Amino acid sequence: MQVAFELNGDPVNADVEPRTTLVDCIRDRLGRTGTHVGCEHGVCGACTVLVNGEAVRSCLMLAVQAQDERVVTIEGLSGDELSPLQAAFRKHHALQCGFCTPGFITTAHALLTNEPDADQERIREVLSGNLCRCTGYIPIVEAILDARSHYARDGEK
């Protein structure tokens, strides 16, 4: 099947099997490898991408379900410079191996776009579906708290 959607602001087309997951399409067919494949059961959050601004587990979504949608991966959150969240993760040493980082950042971006004043409790609640086995969660939460100032009620500045 042919699937067409917007990926990081660019129109893309891919030939996929009907059962191909969005993460496999993004990585294997379209060559964007920033989104990671972890558990393949929607439990770890490593594959989180934004679909029409909403954080979704791309291992649970079929590529054909993305037809005509706007998909943003970790690569699409920054231009020539790091995004505010990426810079905050770097500043707060909120990554170690980095495997989980794209999922945390896309999840946090969706949260802060909708709730720029999210407090620590809300951040922890939203991140509860993302797993990190190296860094621990304190620097991740601190980074997200720090990045809040770069978000406004109507989206990122």
Score class of each variant (00 low, 15 high):
2 Q>P: 15
2 Q>V: 15
3 V>I: 03
4 A>Y: 03
6 E>H: 01
13 N>L: 02
13 N>T: 09
13 N>D: 14
14 A>R: 00
16 V>S: 01
17 E>H: 09
18 P>E: 13
20 T>P: 07
29 R>D: 15
31 G>N: 10
32 R>A: 11
33 T>I: 08
40 E>R: 07
40 E>V: 00
41 H>I: 06
41 H>R: 02
41 H>V: 06
45 G>H: 09
47 C>P: 14
47 C>T: 13
49 V>L: 11
53 G>L: 07
56 V>S: 01
57 R>E: 15
58 S>I: 00
60 L>A: 06
61 M>S: 03
62 L>T: 07
63 A>I: 03
65 Q>I: 00
67 Q>A: 03
67 Q>S: 01
68 D>C: 01
69 E>A: 13
71 V>F: 11
71 V>D: 11
72 V>L: 05
76 G>P: 08
79 G>F: 14
80 D>F: 04
83 S>I: 06
86 Q>F: 07
87 A>S: 14
87 A>I: 05
87 A>F: 09
90 R>V: 09
92 H>F: 10
93 H>Y: 08
94 A>S: 10
100 C>E: 15
100 C>S: 14
101 T>S: 10
102 P>A: 00
104 F>C: 08
104 F>P: 05
106 T>F: 08
107 T>C: 06
107 T>W: 11
112 L>R: 01
115 E>L: 03
117 D>N: 10
118 A>H: 00
119 D>K: 00
121 E>M: 03
124 R>D: 13
125 E>Q: 14
126 V>W: 14
127 L>M: 14
128 S>D: 15
130 N>D: 11
137 Y>H: 09
138 I>M: 14
139 P>R: 03
139 P>F: 08
139 P>W: 05
140 I>Q: 06
142 E>D: 14
142 E>I: 00
142 E>V: 03
146 D>R: 03
146 D>T: 12
148 R>E: 12
153 R>V: 13
153 R>W: 13
154 D>S: 11
155 G>H: 04
157 K>E: 15
